[in-house]
Design a protein around this nucleic acid. Sequence first.
DNA 1: TGAATCTGCGATCGCTATTCGCAGTAATAG
DNA 2: CTATTACTGCGAATAGCGATCGCAGATTCA
Lengths: 240, 240
Amino acid sequence: MSDKPAHPARPAVWQRPERGARGPAPERSRPQITAAAVELADAEGLAAVSMRAIAHLLGTGPASLYRYVASRDDLLDLMADTVAGEIDLSAAPTGDWIDDLSGLAVQSKAVYLRHPWMLDLAAQRGQVLGPRAIDYLDHALAVLAPAPGDGRAKLEAIGLVGGLASLFARQELLAASPGSGAAPAPSAQGAYLASVAAEGRHPHLLAVLTAAGPPPVDSPAERDALFRKMLRRVLPGLLS
Amino acid sequence: MSDKPAHPARPAVWQRPERGARGPAPERSRPQITAAAVELADAEGLAAVSMRAIAHLLGTGPASLYRYVASRDDLLDLMADTVAGEIDLSAAPTGDWIDDLSGLAVQSKAVYLRHPWMLDLAAQRGQVLGPRAIDYLDHALAVLAPAPGDGRAKLEAIGLVGGLASLFARQELLAASPGSGAAPAPSAQGAYLASVAAEGRHPHLLAVLTAAGPPPVDSPAERDALFRKMLRRVLPGLLS
DNA sequence: TGAATCTGCGATCGCTATTCGCAGTAATAG
DNA sequence: CTATTACTGCGAATAGCGATCGCAGATTCA
C-alpha cells in the first residue's frame, strides 16, 4: 500500500531523541510544530500542510523545521499520533467486550469527523503506530481479554473496527457536505451521473435518483447508535 | 474529503469529447495513456505515476498529454474507472441479493489485490463515478431489487460493501508483504513496537507479540470464503 | 483557396520536499 | 579558563513535480 519505502528504512520518529545535550536551546518543539500542522490541516486540508506553510505559520524558514523532524512523513506520523491521543482510554473494561470495543470505535469515528484529513492519512500510510496508538492497541487488547480467539485474530478485529470507523466517518462526511439531499449535487460527478442516468440504460439507477426522498437528517447520536448496532452484529462473528 | 476542490469545478472527464472534429488525427488516445499509467502504477506504485514518467513511457513530452487529459486528476479518474471495468457484471441477478452482492464484493476485493494503488486512489478521491462505475452501480441496484429498504439505503449499502472490500484487501496485502508471521517485521515500526512492548507497560500487547503463532497461510479461496461469511452476517442487518 | 481549428511539444512558471554550509551558541573536557 | 565539540537557525540552492504558453505544422470546413 501507499508508496515505495524504497531506500534505507530510517528509525521511527519516536525513537529519535527530540534534541541533543549540547548546543543552544531549541526555539520550538515537536509538539508545537505538530500542533501548527494539525491546525493547518483542520482548516485547509492535508494538501495545505506543506513545510513552507507550517514554517510561515511559525514565523520561520522551511529549513528550520528539519532540526525537529527528518521529513514531512515524520510530521504526518506525529500528526496522526497526536489526534490518536484524543481517544479517551480511561474507562476500565467492563467485561462486555463488544460494548467496550464499540465505544472505542465510536470515539475513533468522532476523531475522523473532527479531523477529516485523518482519512487521507490513514489510507496513505496504513496504521501509524506511535506511542498513543500503542496505548490504544494495548487498551483494546485489554478490552478483548474476555473475548474468544487468539492474539492475531484480536489484532485483526481491532484493525477492522478502526477501518469500519473510517468508513462510516467518510459516509457521514459525504452526506453532510454536498447537496446530496433534495439538491441533486451540482458537482461535476453529479452532473455526469444525471446525464448518464437520463440516457436510457441504467434503469435502476434512474429509479433511485428520481425517487429522491427527504433529506436524511439523523442526529449525530442516531448515527452513533446505528454504527453501534452494526458493530454488535459483526463483532461476535469475527471473534469466535 | 481528499483535498480542496477550490476553484471552478470543471466538467468530468467523461463529459468532454476525446477530440474535436478539425485538425490532424491525434497520435495517442485516452485509453492508451490510461493503460500506460496503470502499467506504471502496477509496477512502481501510485507515486511513480507522474505526467513526466507517463510521457517518457510513451516516447513524448509531458505537455503532449494535456491534449488528452485536462489534469493529472483526470488521468487518475480514468485509471480508476478502467480497473472498475475489470469487474464482471454479466451474471444475472439470482434473487438471492446477499449472495449476488457478496459476489460483487469479492470481485472488488480482487481488483484491489491486483491493483493495490487503487486503495490509495479510492481513499484520496472518494468514489469515482465513471461509466464503468455507473454500470457497476446500476448492476448492484438491480441485484438489490428484491432487498428491503429504500434507494438511499441501498446506495449506502453498496458503498459500505465497497469499503469493506478495500478494508479486507488492505489486510490481505499487509499480511502478505512484510514478515508479519514468524519474522517479527524488521521495519522501523516493528522495531519501535517491540522496544515499547519490552518496556514494561502494555502487558496485553507484549503477551500477544510474544505468543507469535504460526504464519497464517490461508489460501485466497479461504480468504474469500471468510469475507463472504462476514458479509452474509452484516448485510441482512444493513437493509431491513 | 482561405479561414478556422486542431495537434505536438520545447520552454517555462510556480510549487514542492529536502540538503548544504555557515555563523553563532552552549555545554563539556582537560 | 580555554578549547573542543555538538548543537541551532536558516539563506540559498537542487531536483522534481503539475500545469501553461505559444508557436509551427497539419487537417478540415466553407
